[in-house]
Each structure stands twice: as C-alpha cells, then as structure tokens.
C-alpha cells in the first residue's frame, strides 16, 4: 500500500484526510497568508455534521458567514457573488440547512486544488518533510 506521503500527492482529499498532512498544509497556508481558506473548508465539514435541531447550529452558520464571507476576506474573494448572496439570504432568513455551505466549499476547494495544493507539493515545507 502507498505510504501516507505518497497519498498526499494523489489528491487534496487524501492530504486533508490525514492528520499530519492537514497540519503541514496548514503551516504552508499560514506562511502564504491564506490559512482562512482551509479553516473555512473544515468549518463547512463540521457544520454539515451539526444537528439542525440544536440552536448552536444557526449560530455557527452566522459565525461562518460573518468570519469568512461578509468581511471580504480571502475566502470571500474566491467565491462567486451569487454564492455569497445565497448564504447571506439563508442566514438572514434563518433558513439553516446542512447543505447551505456546500456550493461555497466546492468553489474554495477547486481554487485550493488548482493553486495552493499544487504550490504546496513543490514547497520547501513539503520537500523538507518528505
């Protein structure tokens, strides 16, 4: 079987599914000043697992919106305007749904796969670890 290190190069999915891989990628993104994109990606996964009957879930949706989308951060810049509008409306109308961040996460993930992930695989941080 492939070692974890080899799997990291196969896809972003494998990298982020591995504790050491996710940690190293996070260190890389901190250096590139775009760690928010990864935190947002994990926040979307965490949100999807939350219980919609729990009052905390609506609060978390609002916090994710405020922290990453409303403030025009790097995450917001990588997201389509229609996607941001959809999330803003959902939060405002309290239409909380497990899938409400799915499209946004997909857009951020595609950007990560095309850019940060490719850069990571040729970065000093990765090569030194290998």
């Amino acid at each position: 079987p492939d070692s974890p290190l080899v799997r990291w190069t196969k896809s972003l999915h494998f990298l982020l599914g591995d504790q050491d891989g996710a940690h190293l990628f996070r260190t890389f993104l901190e250096r590139e000043n775009c760690v928010d994109t990864l935190d947002f990606w994990f926040a979307c996964n965490g949100f999807r697992q939350m219980d919609l009957k729990d009052s905390k879930t609506a609060r978390v949706a609002k916090v994710i919106f405020k922290r990453y989308i409303e403030n025009n951060s790097i995450v917001a810049k990588q997201m389509k305007p229609a996607t941001k509008t959809f999330i803003r409306d959902s939060v405002k109308k309290q239409q909380i749904d497990s899938a409400m961040f799915d499209q946004a996460q997909t857009e951020i993930q595609s950007n990560m796969e095309e850019n940060a992930y490719q850069m990571f695989l040729t970065s000093d941080i990765y090569l030194e670890y290998v």
């Binding site: 504790q19 050491d20 926040a43 965490g46 939350m50 609060r59 978390v60 916090v63 922290r67």
Partner: peptide, 20 residues
C-alpha cells in the same frame, strides 16, 4: 454560552482528521 470564537473553533476541530 460559548463565544463566537469558541463555536467556530469547535466546528473546525470537529472536522479535522484524527490520529492515524
């Protein structure tokens, strides 16, 4: 009640990969 930061951090941490 949890602060906004705590809520977000818990949400992120819950989705992080666990030890191999």
């Amino acid at each position: 009640m949890d602060s906004e930061d705590d809520l977000l951090q818990k949400c992120i941490t819950s989705a992080m990969p666990k030890q191999r």
